[in-house]
């Protein structure tokens, strides 16, 4: 996802800790690595041979859900395990690690940090003990330097320090493309230009042909813009050109047909772009634009009311200088 309160511009979901929430969070400390009530229904689904994905909640981070809102998972290869997404908090990452250990004795050799947002990187702390290669976009280190502590403090306010975990930096930076060989399958990584964020990394698995676009692809949940609107539309074309037919989106179902999912995504982004451009051309101010742009997309996306106005705010700043 993205974020307003936690992410400077994104993380609208972080709320002030309610008394009930604080209490529940406190209780939860004793039963790590389970996530609490919301996690009881969590299961790993096998979306391809040796590929397991947990569907994230279509919600914002709360003390009860431990920020388990992204689709996270792992791939079991001949030589070891690659974690495709680490989780939204240390607690979420610990839950994922426990799920891995239940299924295989192979070492966890790689953890992918798909971009800077907290719901995708704070699970990494759970895997530090495995000494894996942490793979990230070449711009991820600087993005985490700028925002990591900011996000961490917000998450601590919500979950407490013990369940939040450290900011983990990539040890393998991808500037263009990179490949990881797990023996029986190869993972090919692509570093994308500014799109959802400025540090988006996608991956294709040679074993299944599945694309892992992370948050370059939102399904069901409204996309959140924190990089470049025009850039995202460009990178969406690039994903399509890569040719895979199925993908594991960053949010939404655990796997989808790529073409229609990308069409829905670009439908929203195009409505956002064209509506914002029209507002700017007509001298509609930013505070009025947030209420009118892309309204026709409202029924198509969950959490529309939480994120659309913020997306318009971000888009307006990018497009008003055209």
């Amino acid at each position: 996802m993205t974020a307003p309160a936690v992410h400077p511009r994104a993380f609208p979901g972080i709320r002030t800790l309610s008394r009930r929430g604080a209490l529940f969070g406190g209780l939860c400390l004793c039963c790590l690595p389970t996530l609490g009530r919301a996690a009881e229904s969590f299961t790993m689904e096998e979306v391809g041979p040796g590929i397991f994905v947990r569907k994230g909640l279509i919600a914002d981070a709360t003390p009860e859900n431990a920020d388990a809102i992204a689709n996270i998972g792992f791939i079991v290869g001949q030589k070891g395990v690659l974690v495709t997404e680490s989780g939204g908090s240390l607690a979420d990452g610990q839950w994922l690690r426990a799920e891995i250990v239940k299924r295989t004795t192979k070492p966890i050799t790689h953890v992918v940090l798909t971009h800077v947002h907290p719901d995708h990187v704070f699970g990494a702390g759970a895997f530090v003990q495995d000494k894996p290669v942490f793979i990230g976009h070449a711009k991820l280190t600087e993005a985490l330097s700028a925002r990591g502590e900011f996000y961490r403090k917000r998450l601590i306010d919500l979950l407490g320090e013990d369940r939040t975990g450290p900011v983990v930096y990539p040890t393998l930076s991808v500037a263009d493309t990179a490949e990881v060989d797990l023996g029986d399958r190869r993972l090919t990584f692509t570093a994308h230009g500014p799109a959802h964020t400025t540090s988006d990394l996608s991956m294709i698995d040679s074993g299944s042909g599945l694309l892992f676009p992370a948050d370059l692809l939102f399904v069901t949940r409204i996309p959140s813009l924190d990089g470049s609107l025009k850039g995202w539309l460009k990178e969406a074309e690039r994903l399509k050109a890569m040719g895979p037919s199925r993908a594991v989106p960053g949010h939404g179902p655990v796997s989808v047909d790529l073409a229609p999912a990308l069409a829905d995504l670009t439908g929203y982004l195009t409505a956002l772009r064209d509506g914002t451009r029209a507002a700017i051309a007509k001298d509609v101010s930013i505070e009025k634009a947030v209420d009118i742009v892309a309204r026709d997309q409202r029924d198509k996306w969950a959490l529309f009311d939480t994120y659309n106005g913020r997306n318009v705010t971000v888009a307006y700043q990018e497009l008003e200088w055209e």
């Binding site: 307003p4 309160a5 400077p8 511009r9 101010s285 930013i286 505070e287 913020r310 700043q317």
Partner: peptide, 16 residues
Amino acid sequence: IDAPVRALDAALVPIT
């Protein structure tokens, strides 16, 4: 003063 009661983006709060 007109400002959103809850800001969508704390780094860019439009004020009239």
